[in-house]
């Protein structure tokens, strides 16, 4: 059950852990923003990773090609919850087209090596970049975004990232 890694490697991994679990993540996990139902949503979709149990619904109000409001409900780990919370904050007021571009870029941020990442400024989403070092957790951070993508495009299926 235990492995004894050399100290240097252990330190590096602990730094990665700190990078993953930053205070902003804890804050959004404890008090998720825009965490409510939206009875007058124009678009919504469900996301569910049955193997791990992360589950959420993303609600949007879209008018004039703009995301006027965004919220979510559900349950998940700290990474999934914080990612959903940050996502709803970031996309509010943005043109749908821009939100879709951000979905693709954010996905690339978490799945491509740091050296190959785009020059885009991810703003507050930057705190999730540390997830890249934990391949098993990428699905947690991207589930809300795939669900958002489905909500915008009216996909009939429940979004899954595992």
């Amino acid at each position: 059950m235990t492995h004894h890694r050399d100290d240097q490697a252990t330190d590096a991994r602990h730094d990665a852990l700190r990078e993953l679990y930053q205070e902003v993540i804890f804050d959004h996990n404890r008090s998720p923003r825009n965490f409510h139902l939206m009875p007058d949503a124009t678009h919504q979709a469900e996301g569910y990773n049955p193997l791990c149990g992360d589950q959420l619904t993303v609600y949007l109000q879209i008018a004039d090609e703009l995301v006027q409001a965004a919220s979510f409900m559900g349950q998940g780990c700290a990474i999934c919850t914080a990612s959903a919370s940050l996502m709803t904050e970031v996309i509010k007021g943005k043109p749908v087209e821009e939100v879709e571009a951000l979905f693709h870029d954010f996905h690339a941020l978490l799945t491509t090596p740091a050296t190959e990442r785009s020059a885009r400024d991810f703003g507050k989403l930057e705190v999730l970049a540390g997830v890249r070092e934990f391949p098993a957790r990428v699905k947690c951070a991207t589930l809300p975004w795939h669900t958002l993508h489905n909500a915008i495009n009216g996909g009939p299926d429940t979004a899954r990232t595992e």
């Binding site: 004894h4 149990g53 700290a78």
Partner: peptide
């Protein structure tokens, strides 16, 4: 206060491998 997946990641970094989630027994959960 700690979701099993978050716990799994942290324990992994401490050299402890555990399994987390539904364990293929979702109705029980």
């Amino acid at each position: 206060g700690i979701h099993p997946h978050d716990l799994g990641t942290i324990l992994d970094e401490e050299g402890v491998a555990i399994r987390t989630g539904h364990h293929c027994a979702m109705p029980l959960m």
